[in-house]
């Protein structure tokens, strides 16, 4: 009994890492500009599409480099065409603007790259491996590509943490996140910082898109992954990078465990036509959590003054 549960748990945790990767992009942008970037899912799709199509006729490394350049160009375009004109607007207006960006990117990506399902071949081992065969009968089944994704994700978090804590740019980013006006008045160029954050978020989206694309194939539904990352965000807190990671792990594991353990019970009691509670379980979990801690696990404490 313990074996299958543990296996589900590990599978969930590894999927959770992929959620964290998407959530990480959200957090970066929210932290530095207070923009709730709904376009992150579309950016993941766009990056994955670019990479998949480019890698069809060039080596992976060059395709990756080109995709990075594309994401930087995209960040520049967004900053220049959209954000620059919306400085000082309400959060909801900026949020709506990112919804517009999401629509545009989904259409644009499929216009130039095509709308079929594309495969990303990263050369990762596909055969599942078994561990702990001595402890459990038959051992535990693990997908090695998910394991590698988890390692890459961990590496990215460490890199980002170093970037934020140690480098000059990272300090400027934290200053902007703290207070736009104060940061500007000590001479930090706001536009440049935003450009940089969107570019970094674009690269995170690229990595996330590659991982998800290798797992599911690159197609339109990839942009829906963003909807899965939202409960991760509120669980972990909008402004916390560790929060995105821990939140992703909790959501990933909770969701898979619920599907295995809770869904059969629900189906039996309410006579349902199939389970599929994955679609909302993460949200309800995050919602219940928020009732006790409104700013999320690691979010900054909300202090309000009149």
């Amino acid at each position: 009994m313990l074996g299958p549960i543990l296996e589900t748990l590990i599978g969930g945790l590894l999927t959770g890492v992929l959620y964290s990767l998407v959530a990480l992009g959200f957090v970066l942008i929210f932290k530095a500009s207070g923009v709730f970037n709904f376009a992150q899912g579309a950016m993941v799709l766009f990056a994955a599409l670019s990479f998949a199509r480019l890698s069809e006729f060039m080596p992976l490394v060059i395709a990756f480099a080109l995709a990075v350049l594309i994401m930087i160009a995209l960040a520049y375009a967004i900053e220049f065409l959209v954000l620059r004109h919306l400085v000082n607007q309400d959060g909801i207006i900026l949020f709506m603007a990112t919804l517009g960006i999401a629509y545009f990117l989904e259409g644009f990506g499929e216009t130039i790259w095509g709308s079929d399902i594309y495969k990303i071949r990263l050369g990762l081992p596909q055969n599942p491996i078994f561990i702990l065969e001595s402890v459990f009968p038959g051992g535990l089944l693990i997908d090695p590509s998910e394991l590698i994704a988890a390692v890459i994700c961990a590496a990215m978090v460490v890199l980002l943490a170093i970037f934020f804590q140690v480098t000059r740019v990272g300090r400027a980013l934290r200053a902007v996140a703290d207070d736009h006006q104060a940061a500007q008045s000590v001479g930090i160029p706001l536009n440049k910082i935003w450009l940089m954050v969107w570019a970094v978020a674009g690269m995170v989206a690229l990595v996330a898109g590659m991982m998800w694309g290798a797992k599911l194939g690159v197609q339109f539904s990839l942009s829906l992954v963003a909807l899965k990352a939202l409960p991760v965000l509120i669980l972990g807190g909008f402004t916390s990078i560790p929060g995105a990671i821990v939140g992703g792990l909790i959501i990933g594991a909770g969701e898979k465990l619920a599907e295995v353990m809770l869904a059969p019970v629900l189906i039996k009691t309410f006579d349902l036509a199939g389970g599929g509670i994955e679609n909302w379980f993460a949200y309800v979990l995050a919602l219940l959590f928020l009732l006790f801690r409104p700013q999320g696990l690691f979010g900054e404490r909300i202090i309000e003054r009149v």
């Binding site: 607007q89 603007a97 517009g100 989904e106 499929e110």
Partner: peptide, 15 residues
Amino acid sequence: HLEFMLFGAMIIFFL
């Protein structure tokens, strides 16, 4: 696809 693009662009423009 173009509809998506134009729709997104129009929303941004209006905002």
